[in-house]
Structures are given as structure tokens and as C-alpha cells.
Design a binder for these strands. Structure first.
Lengths: 210, 210
DNA sequence: TTGCAAAATTTCCTGGTGTGCAGATTGGTG
DNA sequence: CACCAATCTGCACACCAGGAAATTTTGCAA
């Protein structure tokens, strides 16, 4: 706390070692998962490859699955920040468009995970479940845009969030060069714009009939 | 195959006993889950309460979770049938409206499960994941309605399926009398009709701009 | 009724995940 | 160096899951 105020306050050897260990476990585990498959890799093997005791893994991750999905909270938080700190005048959908743009430089982790989860039904489900909280986030943001109370019987946030999330997932999947039918970044944004058009039309229809 | 052709070909004593055992395990397990919680109930306790050996449970269910979610394939199949065998001239959305109507006499299993899953994050995720295959079913059905090939870059089935599924889930949750903010059957259909209006407006907008 | 073959159930086993706890190890500090 | 606290480890156990073989139950036929 006295020395080393060089910029971002170096965390000290202990903290750095902790970080190193965590990253090593994560890296080694993802490597093994992608080589042999998730269920074919045991915690003992991960521990051996990471040079730690099996028990230590649980000091860093709550479960074996958590090693694979530990970055979900990060994505959640990033989306939350993107929605909260958007430029004035920008709508929720605009912010989401930016989010997709920033997402192109895809994480190592995310892409590797996609390949691992592709092989197992349960993991695919688990991955897909990730979008539910994101969808709720979008719905709340849209509700704020529309100025409706959360407990109103307004279906619009629900519908918009569902549509956007579905499109978002579809686009994200196809942004992976390894996927069947991959798309470019421009095509992705074009699809999103089409979705936007759809949403605008739907909202107008509700307005007219309401 | 000779005797007992009384109507629906009684399955024989062996089959009936098997069915009884299966139902007993399921019933007893759900009972214990709702009393003590899912994770606080062991397979050994379920086995004891159902008067079978622990190992026998795996002859009927693939896993502990499967006891809770074993009726999902039934729902899937019912939706598939509803979409496939709809009256001529009826759209996919019409068929879904009927599906909601028929769903009011809610299963014992479904409602009990909702209360059990409500207590645990992982189980809620697992339950929510159930709607993904249903959504795919709806998207395919809508794609057929629109006459587009599955590999076309048509976002409409995706958007419609997502919207409908989201509304469907929301409505289904609130149809449970035990939920906060419960709704009547008429209100549920009113909401669905609103969604339909939204979709129509969105599709028209895409048509204009396409 | 009795005996036989198949199906269902049980018993015993092993492997893997996850957790509590006590003790050893290591980083930080005076 | 000596001390404290955080971290890591080893060991214990409970639970889920599945394989294999023994055992009981059932359906059927002589």
C-alpha cells in the first residue's frame, strides 16, 4: 500500500500467484476438454496437468462445470455496463448493436468453449441457459426506454427482448468461423437491422390497436 | 395376443407392474422433493420410500434429474402433434393458441415441479432450457407456413418463434394460481392475441422493406 | 401344478464429483 | 528471524452413476 503505486497498484506476489494458478487451471482444463471431451476428462487429470492438488481446484471453481462457464458473469456485467452507460439519445437496441460490434474480437475462452459444448447435449443446454439473464437485462432496459413500470402488463419489453436475444444468439453462433454457414461482421449487423425493422413494425401495430 | 382383446389390448401383468413401479418412484420422489427440497433428498431415501433397491431407480430413470423432468418429451411430442395435425387453413400461431387452451388443466406433475424448481437456480435453468427444442419446433413450423427453405437467410421464423415462446412461457408461469400476479385463462389468450398483433405488424414491416 | 426361460430386481463393486476439516506450506510484515 | 494469516494439501466421507453377476419374479407351456 506504500510502494509500487506505479499506475494500477500491483497486487502483490500472493495475489499474482493466485491469479496465475487460476488461469493455469482454466487453460489446462479447456485444453484437455477440447482434446478428450468434457466427460472424458477427470478433475484428477486436470489437477495433475495444472500441477495442483485436486482439492485445490475447488478453491478456485465451484464445480467442474464452473471451469467451463466461469466467464458468464463477466459477459453479463459487460452487457449491463453497455446498456447502462450508453450515449444519450441511443436506444437499447442501438447499444446492443454496439455490443455485437465489440464482440467480434471473440474471447479465446468463448470460442474454445463453443467447440467443447457442441459435443454434449447437457452442455449445450447449459450454455443456452446463459442467455436467460441477459434477456431479462434487455427487457428491463427496454422497459425503461418505454417508460413502463416493471409490473405493468406490458408485453413489449418481453417481445423485444426475446426477439433481440434470439437474433443475437443466432448471429453470435454464426460469427464463429468454425460454424456451418458462417457470416461476416457486416452481414451480422445487416441481420440485426432487419430485426430492428421487424420490431419497429410490431410496436407500431401495437400502438395503433392499443 | 389371443385373449383380452378388450378394447386397448391390456399390456399384461408384467408391463402393468412395471408401470406401477415407475409411477410410484416418480410420485414418491416428487413428494420428497417438495417436502425437503431436491438436493436434500437422496436416491437412497427415494428408494426406501418407494420400496425398491436404489439401483432399481436407474432401471426406470436415467438420472435423479430425469425423475423431475421425465415428462418433457411428452410435452414436446404433444406440441409436435398439435402443430402437425392442425385444421386446414389454421396457422401455426392458431395452433399454438389451441395448445395454450388445452394446457389449462395443468398436469399434477408440471405444477408440483414448478414449486420444486423454484427453490434452486440450477433447476430453474434446467427447466427453462426445456423451451429451446419447443422453440425450434415452432420456428420450423412457421418456416413451412412461410414457404421458406430451412437454410434460407430468413430471420422471420426465428423472430416469431422467439416472441411466441417468450410470451408462451410468461403466460404459462402466470397461469399457475400459486404464482405472483396470476392471470385467468381469458387474460392469457388476450395476451397471446396482442403478441399476434405485434407479429403481424413486424412481418408487414419486413415485407415493405424487403 | 410344476418346470423352464426371460425379464426384472437386487447385491456388490468401482469411478467420479463435491465438501468438511486439520495440518502443512508459503507470502507478508515487524 | 519470528509471527500471522492466507493458501494449499491430504484425508475423510456422502452422493450420483454405471457394470456385472447373482437372485427373485413372471409368463408360459408341458
Amino acid at each position: 500500500m506504500r510502494l509500487s503505486e506505479t499506475g494500477t497498484a500491483r497486487p502483490g506476489l500472493r495475489e499474482r500467484k493466485k491469479q496465475q494458478t487460476r488461469e493455469k487451471i482454466e487453460r489446462v482444463a479447456l485444453q484437455l476438454f477440447s482434446e478428450r471431451g468434457y466427460h472424458e476428462t477427470t478433475l484428477a487429470e486436470i489437477a495433475a496437468a495444472a500441477d495442483v492438488a485436486p482439492r485445490t481446484i475447488f478453491a478456485y471453481f465451484q464445480s467442474k462445470e464452473d471451469i467451463l462457464f466461469c466467464d458468464e458473469p463477466v459477459v453479463y456485467e459487460r452487457l449491463e455496463q453497455t446498456l447502462r452507460h450508453r450515449p444519450p439519445g441511443a436506444t437499447t437496441v442501438d447499444a446492443l448493436r454496439d455490443f455485437v460490434s465489440s464482440m467480434s474480437a471473440a474471447d479465446e475462452h468463448t470460442m474454445l468453449r463453443k467447440r467443447i459444448t457442441a459435443a454434449d447435449e447437457g452442455l449445450r443446454r447449459r450454455e443456452r441457459a446463459h442467455s436467460a439473464p441477459l434477456e431479462r437485462l434487455v427487457a428491463e432496459s427496454i422497459a425503461r426506454d418505454l417508460g413502463t413500470a416493471p409490473d405493468d402488463d406490458d408485453v413489449r419489453p418481453l417481445l423485444i427482448a426475446a426477439s433481440v436475444t434470439a437474433a443475437f444468439n443466432s448471429v453470435r453462433d454464426r460469427l464463429d468461423p468454425g460454424s456451418a454457414d458462417p457470416i461476416s461482421h457486416e452481414e451480422a449487423l445487416a441481420i440485426l437491422d432487419q430485426v430492428l425493422e421487424f420490431l419497429r413494425g410490431g410496436l407500431e401495430a401495437l400502438q395503433r390497436n392499443q
